[in-house]
Structure formats: C-alpha cells, structure tokens
C-alpha cells in the first residue's frame, strides 16, 4: 500500500483541499484562482450558471484535466501527481451520460466493477442493482433508458466501488421532480454513511438541500458557506411587493439608481439593492403611493446569486 504511505497528512476531516486552481483553454481562462475546502461527510453544492467553470473544476479535482496553476489534494492525494489513486477512490458522474449505450445496465455495472478490480463483480453488480431498484431493467440496454433511469444507472456506477468521495456534475439536469427527489434522498443516505458529495447544479432548490454551497461564475468562486451564511454575506436588502400591476412597476424600478435587481416571483416582486440607503430612497416615492404592499424580506438564494453574477460581470465581463 504505497499509495496510503504517499498520502499527505491532511487536516482532519478535509476531503478536498485545493488552492489557486486556474485553467484556460485557447487563451480563454475558464477557471480563475479557485480555492476550496470540503469537509468529510458533507454534501457540498457547487453552484453557478452554465459555462461558469463548474465542470472544469470538477475535472481538475479528478485529474481528468491538469490545472495551469494551483495545487491541492483530493482525499489526501495530490491532484497533480496521484490521479490514479484519486480515480480509485472517487466516483465521478459526468454531466452527459457517458456509460455504454450498447451495453445493458448489468453489463455496464459489471464493467465498472471489473475495472475497479472488485473481487466479486457479479455479486457487487447484483447488490447495486437491488439498491437502485433497477431489478426489472437490469437487462435493458442503457441507450434505451429514459433520462431518470440513465441518471440512476450513472449514480449506481459511481457508487458501485464504494468511493469515499462522489463528484456529481449536474446529475439532475433534465430529470423529472420525482426522480430528483429520490436522487437527493439517496445522496443524503450516502452522506450519512460518511461519503463526501460534491454536486454541481444550477437549481436553487437543490442548493438548499446541501450542507454547504459554493458559487462560481465566470470561472471565479464568488462565495461559499452554508445557505444562511451566503445570504447574510451578500449584504443585499430585499423588499417583497404585492398587489396591482407589478410588471409596469418592475419596468420602472429597473431604471432607478440604487435598485440592483427586480425579479417577479408569481404574484410577488422582489426588489433588491446592495446599498440599503439608496434602495430606500429609490423606492420611497412608490411606497408613498400606497397602492401596493411593501415588506422587507430575506433575499432568496436566487436573488443573492443573480446579484453576485451581475456584480462579477461588472468587474470582469
């Protein structure tokens, strides 16, 4: 077990510990100076819009991409030099389904079990099939499965070799709500068993299911912490407006200085600003009209993220 000996004595309970990860493709920097730490047994949400560098960051963690600069460890193994050991203990679920569409569920799982050198690939596969509730479909070709079942198979293949860390890249994209719910239940079970899960998503409701989150946009990690911490750190003031013609109000408010964000949520309108004084000044004339109900509220995670994104675009876009 040289691999174990080569492991750095990591900080207790830290599974992912990377610093200054940077990667560019063809002169375009996709990930800039990303530093993050993930504790053991956590579900860590990795959020950000499309093309923000989530996939690239995850690939660097698995050793599938070599960072241009930066360093760090994953499960105590160096991401630059020990990708073989990392691959042995990490389950990576790709964004696009990337198992063999011309193999059945069972054949795909057995392949993964054999590559991992598991002592009883057939038995392990049978157990995984039972755990995922795939018994009735075990002989079906993976290519014929619907999105939800494909996702379940992909997760099954990831957890088959009992990894200590799961890296899930937008696992629930294009999956119906029920399948998503079941998927998240499974993730929580795994975390309870001590598996660390890093999951990327752009669904806000999924972010709230995570123990901790990190938000990345334009390749930069903008904030991290628990959902409450992230909301508190944002320094955003939000008012919720109800009643009457909100669309016209929204259009007007959008142009006012001090109003950074106006977002309709059904019958409500969320009006947010970074600077509380300027926001209050901007909305004062409308509040005075008394045609609508104004109430200060907690900004939602979505408000915070959109705010972060626009701020980041102002600085770097």
């Amino acid at each position: 077990m040289n691999a174990v000996a080569a492991r750095k004595p990591d900080a207790p309970g830290i599974v992912i510990d990377v610093e200054g990860l940077t990667k560019s493709f063809g002169g375009r920097t996709v990930v800039k100076n990303v530093t993050m730490q993930v504790r053991r047994g956590l579900i860590y949400g990795f959020l950000g819009p499309n093309g923000s560098g989530k996939t690239t960051t995850i690939r660097m963690l698995t050793g599938l991409l070599t960072p241009d600069s930066g360093h760090g460890t994953c499960l105590g193994y160096d991401i630059l030099t020990q990708s073989t050991e990392i691959k042995r203990h990490v389950g990576y679920m790709t964004q696009r389904f990337s198992l063999y569409t011309d193999l059945s569920i069972r054949e795909n799982l057995e392949f993964v079990a054999r590559v991992h050198g598991m002592p009883d690939p057939r038995g392990a596969t049978q157990d995984a099939i039972a755990r995922l509730g795939l018994e009735n479909r075990a002989s079906q070709l993976a290519g014929e499965l619907s999105g939800g079942w494909k996702q379940r198979l992909a997760l099954g293949a990831c957890i088959l070799p009992s990894p200590k860390l799961l890296l899930l890249d937008e696992p629930t994209a294009g999956v119906d709500p029920q399948a998503r719910r079941e998927f998240w239940d499974e993730i929580h079970h795994l975390a309870h068993e001590g598996v660390t899960v890093l999951v990327s998503t752009h669904y806000m409701d999924e972010a709230e299911r995570c123990h901790e989150i990190a938000y990345i946009a334009y390749g930069e990690l903008l904030t991290r912490g628990t959902v409450e911490e992230v909301v508190a750190q944002s320094g955003l003031t939000t008012y919720t407006v109800t009643g009457g013609d909100l669309t016209a109000l929204a259009d007007e408010l959008q142009k006012k200085p001090g109003v950074d964000q106006v977002a309709p949520f059904g019958v409500e309108l969320h009006v947010s600003g970074r600077d509380r004084k300027r926001l209050d000044a901007a909305i004062a004339p409308y509040r005075a009209k008394n045609t609508k109900a104004w109430r200060q509220s907690e900004p939602t995670l979505e408000d915070v993220f959109i705010e972060l994104m626009s701020r980041s675009r102002d600085n770097f876009g």
């Binding site: 698995t62 599938l64 073989t84 691959k87 042995r88 990490v90 990576y92 790709t94 696009r96 389904f97 990337s98 198992l99 063999y100 569409t101 993964v112 590559v115 991992h116 050198g117 293949a157």
Partner: peptide
C-alpha cells in the same frame, strides 16, 4: 465521439 471516453478516463485503468 460517443462521450464514453470521459467515463473510461475517470476509471482506474492504464
């Protein structure tokens, strides 16, 4: 072309 390379590369195989 089928995208299965990403899985293959993420597995511990030389």
């Amino acid at each position: 072309e089928r995208g299965t390379m990403e899985t293959l590369l993420s597995l511990p195989i030389r």
